[in-house]
Design a protein around this nucleic acid. Structure first.
Length: 937
RNA sequence: GCUCGAGUGGUGGAAUUGGUAGACACGUUGGACUUAAAAUCCAAUGACCAUUGCGGUCGUGCGGGUUCAAGUCCCGCCUCGAGUACCA
């Protein structure tokens, strides 16, 4: 009988599906284990071989844990709201729901073919109303909350209202909008309902405000900071500009410190934690208030170097700073407005590319130095960013290179405050302990002391205070798009009100067009009837809304990250119609034990989901503050692109070896046209695209050799390899093992089919331990000691390797094991049965088949994982290295082998020991339980 | 510029706390079985020297150091990759 993987894989996939083998129960006496994959966006292109890498790894862990006696939750679903489906809809008029459904079907088929042990009864789709109903519910809960700084947690807004009624807002410490006027209880109680709502909006965790947003004209929508890479949109690479718009935001800033501190409790990679730390960007320093000469307003700046305050010779504001208009003098107005206009025109990218250009303009106004009382010029300059700190800096040219360059360029005075330091060429930016000079009461003090003293002095004068500043901005939550969750909000006189939870879901309407309306409203503006009907149906009475309003409903939708910020909770209890998750399920599953996914989500999904988790925890809906203590970022599988070379201006394509110095342009060709020796199938290329039909291919030694380059796998680079093809030729089990064998899980690696035969041969070789031609040759004889030794060494190594997620070495171990068993011609049931169990997480179909061949009727899945038995690993005569550390002590290490109790005798290789000890032989041997044996001499 | 990774045969990569570097696989070469091919099996495969003496020398990016012992630890460089960037 040959190894017919096609037949076997079909058979067992069908079996698992019919038996519902992988359905997890929400209660069990077994300990729980929750293995989570980052769910995919179902794109039109389908899966390529890179996508399953993480799923294979998590599937191995899931299956391993089932063998180890855990009740395993291993779900899968789809992040199915998103831009590509919407853009496709714009082009073709097809409803995104339809294309999404088609894509999901295709994904499912591909996933099933690889034999994953997902519990599909828990599938979620973020675009399904049953799911986004609860996304909307969480939005409403955020709307119903504020962040209390006294207790450092989110609380119901009703508590805030109660405080306002009792004592106004004077003593309230909350994370909220800036510039909220103070009011007492009487004033609050005297306010009208709408007025109160307007105040509350400034405290809510999701709130509407006029904010400077990243506007992407090409996509017709705003974008969050993490959706912009190098000044252009992540999707499509379109330019992004600044625009002021009334938008929903999420007060993630309230959680900045907890998100930062929480990282210390997580077992995530250092690099990923570092990315989040940088993104949160905590800096400790001081706020300093400068009076503006001749104005009431005070100018607030943030600095990390309050110790350098006596070096201030000017101030710089961002062009967008709100005080600019107020304080600019008549003579300077023209120049200032020109400058602002020029700055506004530029995209983020242009600004970034002009970093080295120094530009700025004097406002004509002066600030008063809080200590010296001298007046300092106030400038505006692009180098100050509106979005960081207060959008204004106190410029200390002697201590900051940018201020220094600016001062030199505009001939502004520079004061040196550093003792013995030459600042004629550049600023002194070190924090090293040089004494200060020209600094009044700070003279002679070191950095640390001066910082302390200056903050103290500022506070005394009421001219500043110690502050912590975060780079993390509140997250813009509105998107001017169709294919996203509708925001469950209606308006009355411009004030937002929440729909009631029992009225959810607020479903997406059908629209004719997916583009924004002609008057610039989001796509949902095309659904006027929907908006009115919804409001009539769901809001108590018509009086509740303003007659004047044309669109009483919120027309923006939620961003892509909304649905993905809590899907891992929904999996615990995906069918629940009463609540976003049931208490019993939640108490049982608690959190994710292992999360696997790409590191590219560090500043997006992985931050936002932590934020929502903490919020839901604060409000008492979740039991833990971090949902995934252990995270592994699988590396990317890269494509191995193939190139042909067109001679400039001709239709001649030159084989790679013949290019020499000629001018050629490389053109991607589909990798399937190229064989393992990089020879091109010219006929296929000619048939592929019209352009090449009459092209001339210049060969070397009768062949056209292509160039190769490793790039990201993508359709446009024609380097995509479809897992279906591999399953067709080698089978899913080979694909699974090969992807793991390619290299360490967390490393990026190019796809290369060259080595796949090795893994396939391994399976065939294992098969031959069971079958000789047609005959099953498994016997019930007593295995030899050698066979036991091989098996138990394998058990030990495979178990250890899975537990440290080193799957590539596991596979090597299997190969050694099977090679050795073949050499012994060992086909004993007592050896083969446990071996098949070991192998089953990696090659599940293969193992199930052989398991049933051995006469078992139940699925191998729940068979206990074989335990390592040191008794079977007898010969340990290997000579162990002996080490000597200064305390006259030797450490003798045993690699696998025996537990200490089993050791009868230790033989020390005299010659070797003598060599290493240079004439100090051991005198006494003490055996201590554990792995290390100490020999004291 | 800053932060974090990584540099090991022809290739992918092993070497868990310092302990026989190169496991395992691909590739290559030779051989067996075959009319032949496929499939399968066996042997060799870091470099150099010696191979009718079984061995020897050098080897983990470079230069130092610690240690009986360094791919692994420390110091100083080089190269590559990833992220990030006027963050006050």
């Amino acid at each position: 009988m040959i190894y017919d993987f096609q037949k076997i894989e079909k058979k067992w996939q069908n079996f698992w599906s019919v038996q519902q083998t992988f359905k997890a129960e929400n209660q069990s006496d077994k300990p729980k284990y929750y293995v989570l994959d980052m769910f995919p966006y179902p794109s039109g292109a389908g899966l390529h071989v890179g996508h399953p890498l993480g799923y294979i790894a998590s599937d191995i862990v899931a299956r391993f844990k089932r063998h180890k006696g855990f009740n395993v939750l291993h779900p899968q679903g789809y992040d199915s709201f998103g831009l590509p489906a919407e853009q496709y809809a714009m082009q073709t008029g097809q409803h995104p729901a339809k294309t999404t459904a088609t894509n999901i079907k295709r994904y499912r088929k591909q996933l099933d073919r690889m034999g994953f042990s997902f519990d599909w009864s828990r599938e979620v789709q973020t675009s399904s109303p049953d799911y986004y109903r609860w996304t909307q519910w969480i939005f409403l809960l955020l709307f119903d909350s504020y962040y209390c700084l006294d207790d450092d947690k989110a609380k119901p807004i009703s508590k805030l209202i109660a405080s306002f009624e009792a004592e106004g807002n004077i003593n309230i410490k909350a994370n909220c909008d800036n510039n909220i006027p103070e009011f007492g209880a009487d004033e609050w109680n005297a306010m009208g309902a709408l007025e109160k709502e307007e105040v509350l909006l400034k405290y809510r965790l999701t709130y509407l405000s006029d904010t400077e947003v990243n506007w992407c004209p090409a996509l017709g929508t705003v974008l969050a900071n993490d959706e912009i890479i190098n000044g252009v949109s992540e999707r499509g690479g379109h330019p992004v500009t600044k625009k002021k718009m009334r938008q929903w935001s999420m007060r993630i800033g309230a959680y900045a410190n907890r998100l930062l501190e929480g990282l210390n409790t997580l077992d995530w990679s250092d690099s990923l934690k570092e990315v989040q730390r940088n993104w949160i960007g905590k800096s400790i320093g001081a706020s300093v208030y400068f009076d503006v000469k001749g104005h009431q307003d005070r100018l607030e700046v943030f600095t990390t170097r309050p110790d350098t305050i006596f070096g201030v010779t000017f101030m710089t504001l961002a062009p967008e700073h709100e005080l600019v208009q107020k304080i600019t003098t008549a003579e300077q107005r023209g120049a200032v407005e020109n400058y602002i206009l020029e700055a506004a025109k530029k995209s983020d990218r242009e600004r970034q590319s002009e970093v080295k250009n120094i530009s700025g303009v004097f406002t004509g106004a002066y600030a008063i130095h809080p200590f010296t009382k001298e007046k300092v010029q106030i400038w505006i300059g692009e180098y100050v960013l509106a979005g960081y700190g207060t959008g204004a800096v106190m410029a200390v040219p002697c201590g900051d290179q940018r201020d220094y360059d600016f001062a030199k360029h505009f001939d502004i005075p520079i004061i040196n405050i550093f003792d013995q330091i030459d600042i004629s060429e550049a600023a002194y930016t070190e924090k090293a302990s040089v004494g200060l000079i020209n600094s009044d009461f700070l003279n002679g003090l070191s950095y640390k002391k001066a910082v302390k003293r200056s903050i103290y002095a500022l506070e005394e004068l009421n001219a500043g205070k110690g502050t912590v500043n975060f780079r993390l901005r509140d997250a813009v939550f509105s998107r001017q798009r169709y294919w996203g969750e509708p925001i469950p909000i209606y308006f009355k006189s411009g004030i937002p009100f929440p729909l009631k939870a029992e009225h959810l879901p607020l479903k997406l309407p059908k629209v004719e067009k997916y583009l924004p309306t002609e008057d610039g409203k989001p796509p949902l503006g095309n659904a006027k009837d929907w908006a009115w009907n919804t409001v009539l149906e769901k809001v108590v009475s018509l009086d509740e809304i303003d007659n004047e309003t044309i669109f009483p409903l919120e027309l923006n939708t939620m961003p892509g990250w909304a649905g993905s910020s809590w899907y891992f909770i929904r999996y615990m209890d995906a069918q629940n119609e009463e609540s976003f998750v049931g208490n019993r399920a939640l108490n049982y599953w608690q959190d994710v034990d292992l999360y696997l996914g790409g590191g590219e989500h560090a500043t997006g999904h992985l931050l936002y989901s932590r934020f929502w988790q903490k919020f839901l925890y604060d409000r008492g809906y979740l039991p833990v503050e971090e949902y995934a203590k252990k995270l592994i970022n699988q590396g990317m599988i890269l494509g191995n692109s193939a190139f042909i070379y067109r001679k400039k201006g001709t239709q001649d394509f030159i084989s790679k070896g013949l290019i020499k110095g000629q001018k050629v342009e490389p053109i991607h060709v589909d990798v399937s046209f190229v064989n393992l020796n990089n020879e091109l199938d010219i006929e296929k290329v000619k048939a592929w695209q019209k352009d090449f039909e009459h092209s001339n291919f210049i060969l070397e030694e009768g062949k056209y050799i292509v160039g190769r380059e490793v790039e990201k796998m993508s359709k446009s680079k024609y380097n995509v390899v479809n897992p279906d093809e591999i399953c067709e030729t080698y089978g899913a089990d080979t694909l699974r093992m090969y992807e793991m064998f390619l290299g360490p899980l967390e490393q990026d690696k190019p796809w290369n089919t060259a080595g796949i035969s090795g893994v396939h041969n391994f399976l065939k070789k294992t098969w031959r331990l069971f079958y000789d031609q047609e005959k099953l040759i498994v016997d019930n004889n007593k295995p030899s000691p050698e066979a036991y030794k091989i098996l138990h060494q394998t058990i030990k190594k495979v178990t250890d390797d899975i537990e440290r997620y080193s799957f590539n070495t596991c596979i090597s171990t299997f190969m050694i094991c099977v090679n050795e068993l073949s050499a012994l011609k060992c086909s004993n049931r007592e050896i083969l049965a446990p071996l098949i169990v070991l192998l089953s997480p990696f090659a599940p179909h293969f193992s199930e088949e052989l398991w049933s061949v051995l006469g078992h009727s139940k699925s191998i899945e729940f068979e206990p994982f074989p335990l390592f038995d040191p008794y079977h690993v007898t010969e340990t005569t290997k000579d162990y290295p002996v080490s000597f550390n200064g305390k006259m002590r030797f450490t003798l290490k045993l690699s696998l082998s025996l537990s200490i109790d089993e050791i009868k005798e230790i033989v020390i290789n005299e010659e070797r020991t003598q060599n290493q000890l240079q004439g100090n032989p051991p005198k006494k041997i003490i055996v201590v339980p554990g792995k290390i044996i100490n020999i004291v001499i």
